[in-house]
Write a protein that binds this DNA or RNA. Structure first.
Lengths: 227, 227
DNA sequence: TAGATTGTTAATCGATTAACAATC
DNA sequence: TAGATTGTTAATCGATTAACAATC
């Protein structure tokens, strides 16, 4: 058995390479790509591309580059995108609705299969071609439809409760959009997307950028006093 | 001048501590917190909390812990959240609308100040209490309202163009939700949130989890043959 | 004083990168 | 053969963590 421990940092970049390769294949009709070119498209450096791709195996040709179709297939397979992962969204408010009708998912091969909420208003409503069901039906639905990815799009106060429903129903992968941490058993995969935190981090760098600009300006005035 | 280079990894965790501290202050009415407790709430270990907080200065008391109010103030200030960063959203489709009416932003001190689109259908419409304006008005609007954070919520094909509008208008921080890379000058801060990429990464770990479960099952059968 | 907890050091770990031999 | 480009090594860098002296 190959030693197969792809570093986390590499896994996080594979989808970026995938997108760049799809673009090359579709719009440029290119057949091969060098690490230099792929790096440029992905916004990283060439050494990193080669190192990352080497974890998948030796799929390049020295002096030539990487065969785009073949590399696309290998990355797709490695990421598990050759199979379907039926996905459910819980919490059909503003964000849940936007996610349920988000074209980007279906364009990239993800299909949302079920929507859940626990407010009697939302239940029964049609959103993005699916009928919203009550959260109590989740467990049955997992058994029937083989749901295996759960998306939390509720307010923060319900996030932990929803996560427990997911775990109880046997879902092993959770994408959490609620602004709250959730605790799950160690064999459950959780990723967190936090819109406010992204803005807060951006605020830090914005503040720093402004401070740098102000310092530069102050220096300029000192060197060129009262013109 | 203090040497002031807070590591990126620490900056990314400050908002998580902030949220945990707010929760402690509001719902628990606690006055101090230990690194151990804060670590538990933030889902990290205590050594990391102490190291992270030490970059802000020595704000704890040995034998006691950290004063919650004081730490809240220091983190808020460090993240630049004591000031307003007027924010605009470009691209008023499904996602743009959800972001424009997302309660989580205002609850955490971010106000969306302007919405832009370039389709004649969207322009003039009211969304989340704001009138959608044409993208051509962006530059004037930045000058008038001091907009300094720009959110891209367009389809991928328009992302680079919108980024260039932002840069041209003098915006220095961009949050990009479009599934495409954007190139900007080095003094512009960009963060990328990519919903499909999050699902693709989750797909990788889901596949691995299933493989592990299958291997365990196979082993079990070998050890306990035909019961 | 005894117990608790910080702030910091030093060891460790994982990720990045430059460089270059291998090879198309 | 000459030029191009990979795959891999080894150096470097940054982040994590355990451990503990300092000190409330």
């Amino acid at each position: 058995m190959r030693s197969r421990a792809i570093p986390e940092a590499t896994v996080a970049r594979l989808p970026i390479y995938l997108r760049a390769l799809l673009d090359l294949a579709e719009t440029q009709r290119a057949l091969t790509v060098s690490s230099e070119e792929l790096a440029r498209l992905a916004g990283v450096n060439a050494a990193k591309v080669r190192k990352d791709l080497s974890y998948l195996g030796s799929y390049g040709t020295r002096g030539v580059g990487y065969d785009i179709e073949y590399l696309l297939y290998q990355i797709t397979r490695e990421l598990g995108l050759t199979q379907d992962w039926p996905t459910a969204i819980v919490g059909i408010g503003n964000l849940g609705r936007a996610l349920a009708s988000y074209k980007g998912f279906s364009e990239r091969g993800f299909r949302i299969d079920a929507l859940f909420d626990n407010s009697s208003e939302a239940v029964g409503e049609e959103v993005g071609g699916l009928i919203v069901r009550h959260l109590d039906e989740l467990k049955d639905c997992v058994a029937e439809s083989g749901l295996c990815i759960g998306i939390i799009a509720t307010p923060p106060t319900s996030a932990q409760e929803v996560a427990e429903h997911f775990v109880d129903a046997g879902i092993k992968s959770i994408l959490n959009f609620a602004p709250a941490m959730v605790n799950v058993p160690p064999d459950v995969n959780v990723r967190k997307v936090d819109l406010s935190i992204e803005l807060q981090i951006l605020s830090f760098y914005q503040q720093r950028t402004q401070a740098i600009a102000a310092a530069r300006e102050a220096n300029r005035r000192l060197n060129l006093p009262s013109a």
